[in-house]
Design a protein around this nucleic acid. Structure first.
Lengths: 219, 219
DNA sequence: TCTGTTTTGTCACCTGGGTGACAGTTTTTA
DNA sequence: TAAAAACTGTCACCCAGGTGACAAAACAGA
């Protein structure tokens, strides 16, 4: 998740930023705690000092991960996202007014913001992609193909994808039901587009062929 | 869409940025032309000099507006979004490497990027919100209520919303069909939650009541 | 190897909503 | 003001996919 080599924290600790740095007050959260939730809470800006937090959109039933924030990342508590500590963490907070007055002039700070926002934006596009494909089959195929492209291992029978996910988890990922995904996977296997070799392990003989099955909804 | 008062263009034209400014080459596009489309094209950064462009996500059938860029806004051609000129426009372009080398150190530039990304991110959250509600009724109600909150005018019979949209356009916005939306609107009127007073004009007697009908899917 | 637990495949059933069709209404245009 | 075009409401029909149920299979311990 890094563009710039330099770490923002180190940057801010340099002597010339002493006054600026002092405007930040440290806070600690323990694993699982929420730094912010949509709706309630103050309007603050925070910088990650240590640990990792997860940023996600949450609805009644579903959650969508937007990204993980690590040391040096900047984010706000005043968004419609949930921000949850994945482990015990420390952050530096300041209110928006102070932040805008003092820190927006610092390119390191704004560059960090651009980096974070850019990444979250990118994942949010992916989420939209996933939601737009109307039928479950397209989404399932897209997920499998995507996984194959990212983590697939070439083998003699085809590309081996080892997501160690049960059908149920797969279903949740594509926003469908266990039963439907089970049937869909069965169909793909019967069509020879997919081979299952154990729980959560798939082999794709022909990726392009598989992809051509999903989403090509000519009207 | 502005945070900072100062205009980026003026900022860049000040003498101390002469060399930086010269790294930007001007381009013009006429109304309706695409500055970039997902997939093809170069990887450039551009700054709006004049006119307005629309940034949107496009799929086979649907489009989602992400925002409008105006003078001083910065964006990239290398995204999964479409960028289309809404009128005759002028922009200043540079390649990513140059941009990163010269301009990322300028807080005005990065602040402009933060502003643009932040806004696009916010609308993309709204898009996700809209897509997550599974049933057409929730989405329709959410749209109407949202519109009422933003552009509604108080009147004696309730809040008057004058979206001059046909049922068909409304349908496209909520990702449903003309017929379904027609029926749904009829239901709302029959339930007394909505009054239609002419094409594309609605009166909402009780906004809270209307909102309570959409989306409250207790399980 | 036997047994309880988790994961799967499949079926029958039901609902939301897309589609085409068509009539009635409103608006535009000549 | 008559004719054409654009909207709107409804209906019958159909399909994707969610749900509950249940049996088969796979696994994990002991």
């Amino acid at each position: 998740m890094k563009f710039l080599e330099e770490n923002l924290l180190d940057h801010l600790q340099r002597p010339e930023f002493a006054d600026l740095f002092s405007a930040l007050s440290p806070r600690a959260y323990s694993k699982g705690a929420y730094l912010s939730q949509p709706g309630h809470g103050e309007n603050l800006i925070f910088i990650m000092a240590s640990g990792r937090v997860r940023v996600y959109l949450g609805y009644e039933e579903k959650e969508f991960n937007l990204g993980i924030l690590t040391k040096g990342d900047i984010y706000s508590t005043h968004t419609r996202t949930f921000v949850q500590a994945l482990e015990d963490i420390e952050i530096l907070v300041t209110d928006v007014a102070t932040f805008r007055r003092n820190m927006v002039k610092d390119p390191e700070v704004t560059a960090a913001m651009v980096r974070v926002l850019g990444n979250i934006l990118k994942t949010s596009f992916s989420i939209i992609d996933g939601l737009v494909f109307k039928d479950a089959n397209s989404r399932l195929v897209a997920l499998l193909a995507g996984e194959a492209r990212k983590h697939g291992v070439e083998s003699e029978a085809g590309i081996k994808v080892s997501t160690h996910l049960s059908v149920e988890q797969l279903a949740r990922l594509v926003g469908s039901s266990r039963q439907t995904v089970s049937t869909l996977l069965g169909d793909l296997v019967r069509a020879g587009l997919l081979v299952r070799s154990g729980r959560g392990i798939f082999i794709i003989p022909d990726l392009l062929l598989l992809e051509s099955v999903g989403g090509v909804e000519h009207s």
